[in-house]
Design a protein around this nucleic acid. Structure first.
Length: 840
RNA sequence: GCGGCGGUGGCGGAACGGUAGACGCGGGGCCCUCAAAAGGCCCUGUCCGCAAGGGCGUGUGGGUUCGAAUCCCACCCGCCGCACCA
């Protein structure tokens, strides 16, 4: 018998070539399949089989894939394979998020067109995905920077524009004075520096494009309840949306111009403390601040303060620890509930973006207002008394009884009073119940080259005009100079910019900003369903077949942005009649990071593990199994080369024992049935195989890949232990089962083993089912406890009655020793497990 | 500060309220070999003991229970997210 070596370098390319040749993982849409006549290999009976959509977040193709990609796709592939073998038609596509800053920055440095560098990266990603053996339907591959894709990104933008969901507005944006460009939020570090050049970022007022995601705040919040996502991701989204219930209350300013009083609404979550308002504060950005201060003794001070505040970074302003600053405006407003005139201030602790940009200050019951009042010597009034026995020191933010307010409300519990005061305000026309959100509209314009052009032209006569659908895509022109100079590099492409108005044929200019890349990735999962459609973004029938995504997989770093934007797109598109579902991702799995020596892999730390080198050394199956075996996939995992070796040894042992068994059996034979009349060691091994089927199936359903692989290891250990004492048939069954179970994790090795043993294709086999009778045995080890401590173990029959079990336990030698001279108080029997004797 | 997650051998990690430490790594011993690599077999929480066996053990302190890593209360530590959001 020849000694055989496990050689993944030979095995893996062989199976990859077969899968590529036969296009094994392609699935057709049902309508295409009917007309095409020739069903693809893995379309089993078409419509009879339920559709499943398994999707990993699409990669940003920069350089080469890293270990995090390997983990993500190994994980998704395991799920996709499992679902296929459960009889589902599985859509498992791949694409590239290929617009974006890294490619553009590379172009600025090297002069290489982003299209060229992106194409190289994509080629590298494709090569590696194939070398990892990921079961991808390549017929649906897409790249967001291709005109055939972004044509539809533009179409969606125009749909949103027509619905009023895309609009232009002046806003404060991040501006880098060195690079002369607006920056994406994600390009500004925590200290407010430009990620690229390190300059301190400024805030500028510029007209920008926004998407009206705030219209969807309530639905984005509410619909979280109906989707199967990790709780922490839902929590993050809830916090980000930041819903607050309260009231809008109007304060009137009459001393600015008594003939024309001005009303200033404020938002408060505590209208019950309205009687405690002793001053009023406006944000420095509030448009009326300077007008109010004009002509008062505070005019200059207010002007200086506003200027200083506007030039401060968010980081400085956002620091709640520092002493409160502000300047009086020399004006007063009237508190609507008691007619008191209270002074107005401007202070930077009030934010223009939240609520109305002005607040009523209640220093007795709000910590920030309290700090401000202490600094400026303003009155602090208690209007809520803490319950008996509780520390009610001011500022007191807890519940209690209203005091010092008004005869009508004093003595009420504050929650009750809140409702009563809001009702009163409503009746008097001075306020109403209101809900506020932290969520802001999504700024989508970028003064950047490598992005999707915004399909709008500006005409002197007609104003802002959408590009007609038949003229899409507005293609991104080639340019020579990628350097941003305070406006989009596209603005220099004069020939491209100059155009004619679609509406009046007069001279017009194109929008030169491009879209945030998060727009591109907010709908790509829809395009996969009908990726080659040149007539429309998708055929609604294709979406009905596949959407929503049954299992989405990716990193937590997208917990808010991408996942929130994609949800918003679906809701908006559904409202416009393009979709008939509200949520894109029915279930979400967030994978943990892969670290090295406990820290994040990075080039500067020199601790980067390259998937390509691992695959070259030990094979893709080892790499994939290791990364799933090392720990629960939602947790961070530390890369260990020794651990990789361990998994490699396991695959080698499995493969060698299988190859040897196949040889001993005289080559492959198709039947792989569970041997019927096994006994002794035979039975032990066959039972172990059925146990493994049961264990791996359950573990796969709950994404416990680490314990699933461990179960196959246990099965192999049992095979090794019993190799001399069991029949070739039992061994074939056990090893074939091991390969079958391991296929979702180590597809090449498993396919090879299964082929050697049976001559059949493991991916075409249905997922094995454990025989119920094989999961029970007629004897088991009964644990005998005395006072909850294990004292002995004895063999017990599966059908023994509780009485018999007690009897067995009492007779166990070491139990007898512990019962000596004690009084038996109680006997607990857990059939199949243990007996616990309680003694005194 | 608010919210979320976590704390188990030398290490990664297992464990429907029912045998704590599966599986793997690392370590030790042995076999094969002229030797090594590769491979195979055995041991491996800790302390006492020749052994049989026993004590102690899941961040800390309490509680519920016949029985707690698991449930409850209080606390300590670590990680992540948000943070002057009225």
């Amino acid at each position: 018998m020849s000694e055989q070596r496990y050689e993944p370098q030979e095995i893996e390319p062989r199976w990859q070539a077969l899968w590529a040749e036969e296009r094994t993982w392609e699935v057709a849409n049902l309508d295409e399949e009917e007309s095409a006549g020739e069903p693809l290999a893995n379309v089993r009976g078409g419509a009879e089989h339920p559709a499943a959509y398994v999707l990993e977040m699409l990669p940003y193709p920069s350089g080469e894939p890293h270990i995090g990609h390997l983990k993500c796709y190994a994980l998704g592939d395991a799920i996709a394979h499992f679902q296929r073998r459960l009889g589902q038609r599985v859509l498992h596509p791949m694409g590239y998020d290929s617009f974006g800053l890294p490619a553009e920055n590379h172009a600025i440095r090297t002069g290489v067109h982003p299209r060229v560098s992106i194409a190289e990266s994509i080629a590298s990603f494709q090569r590696q995905f194939r070398s990892w053996g990921i079961s991808i339907d390549w017929s649906r591959e897409l790249s967001t920077s291709e005109p055939s894709y972004y044509r539809w990104t533009q179409w969606i933008f125009l749909e949103l524009f027509r619905a009023g969901l895309a609009y232009r507005r002046e806003a404060a944006v991040k501006w880098c004075p060195n690079d002369q460009t607006v920056l994406a939020n994600e390009q500004v570090d925590a200290e407010g520096h430009c990620e690229r050049c390190g300059a301190l970022v400024e805030v500028r007022q510029l007209e920008q494009w926004f998407l009206r995601i705030t219209d969807y705040a309530e639905r984005l919040l509410g619909d979280l309840d109906g989707i199967d996502w990790p709780e922490h991701v839902k929590t993050m989204q809830r916090n980000w949306i930041g819903r607050s219930e309260g009231a809008e209350v109007t304060f009137r300013c009459e001393d600015f111009d008594p003939a024309h009083p001005v009303d200033y609404p404020v938002f408060t979550t505590r209208p019950d403390t309205l009687f405690g308002a002793t001053f009023f504060v406006m944000a420095p950005e509030h448009p009326d601040v300077l007008r109010l201060a004009a002509g008062t003794e505070h005019e200059q001070a207010a002007r200086d303060y506003v200027n200083r505040a506007l030039n401060e970074t968010n980081e400085e302003r956002g620091n709640a620890e520092r002493t409160k600053t502000g300047v009086p405006l020399g004006r007063t407003v009237t508190n609507p509930v008691n007619g008191e005139r209270i002074p107005m201030y401007v202070a930077d602790y009030v934010l223009m973006e939240y609520g109305t940009g002005a607040i009523m200050a209640v220093p007795g019951h709000d910590e920030r207002d309290y700090d401000f009042a202490r600094t400026f010597g303003l009155p602090i009034k208690r209007v809520i008394a803490a319950p008996e026995g509780q520390d009610g020191d001011l500022p007191y933010a807890g519940d209690g009884t209203l005091v010092n307010s008004h005869a009508e409300f004093d003595g009420l519990g504050n929650r009750e009073a809140l409702a009563a005061i809001v009702a009163w305000l409503d009746r008097e026309g001075k306020g109403h119940a209101s809900v506020n959100y932290r969520l802001r509209d999504w700024l989508v314009s970028r003064q950047r080259y490598w992005g999707c052009p915004i399909p709008i032209v500006y005409c002197e006569r007609c104003g802002m005009v959408p590009v007609p659908e038949e003229d899409l895509p507005v293609e991104l022109p080639d340019i020579d100079d990628y350097q941003p100079k305070g406006r989009s590099p596209l603005a220099a492409a004069e020939e491209w910019v100059r155009t004619t108005c679609p509406s009046c044929d007069g001279p017009a200019r194109r929008e030169t900003d491009t879209m945030d890349t998060f727009v591109d990735s907010s709908w790509y999962f829809l395009r996969y369903c009908d990726a080659r459609n040149s007539e429309a973004a998708w055929d609604p029938a294709a979406l009905r077949e596949w959407m929503p995504v049954d299992q989405y997989i990716g990193g937590v770093e997208h917990a808010i942005l991408h996942l929130l934007y994609a949800r918003f797109f679906c809701k908006a598109l559904a409202d416009l009649g393009h979709l008939d579902f509200q949520e894109p991702f029915q279930a979400l799995f967030t994978q943990g990071m892969v670290t090295k020596d406990g820290s994040k892999m990075s080039k500067s730390k020199g601790n980067v593990v390259s998937p390509a080198s691992i695959v070259e050394r030990v094979g893709a199956d080892t790499a994939r199994c290791y990364i799933l075996f090392v720990g629960p996939p939602d947790q961070d995992a530390d890369w260990s080369d020794e651990g990789v070796e361990g998994v490699h040894r396991f695959l080698g042992r499995l493969w060698r024992l299988a190859a040897e068994t196949a040889e001993r059996a005289g080559g492959p034979s198709p039947e792989l049935d569970s041997p019927d009349f096994a006994e002794g060691d035979e039975l032990v091994l066959v039972r172990k195989a059925h146990w493994a089927i049961d264990k791996v199936s359950g573990d796969l359903r709950r994404f416990a890949f680490n314990t699933a692989i461990a179960a196959v290891m246990e099965l192999l250990n049992e095979c090794s232990r019993l190799r001399e004492s069991v029949s070739i048939e039992s061994m074939r069954f056990a090893l074939g089962t091991a390969a079958s179970l391991l296929f979702p994790f180590a597809p090449h090795t498993s396919a090879d083993i299964y082929d050697r043993l049976t001559g059949e294709r493991v991916w075409e086999q249905p997922w094995p089912e454990a025989e119920e009778s094989m999961l029970e045995s007629d004897e088991y080890e009964l644990v005998c406890q005395v006072n909850g401590k294990v004292r002995d173990r004895v063999q017990a029959g599966a059908d023994a009655t509780p009485e018999q079990l007690k009897e067995l336990c009492r007779a166990a030698p070491n139990v007898i020793a512990h019962l000596d001279g004690k009084e038996l108080v109680k006997e607990i029997v857990v059939p199949g497990k243990l007996v616990n004797l309680v003694v005194r």
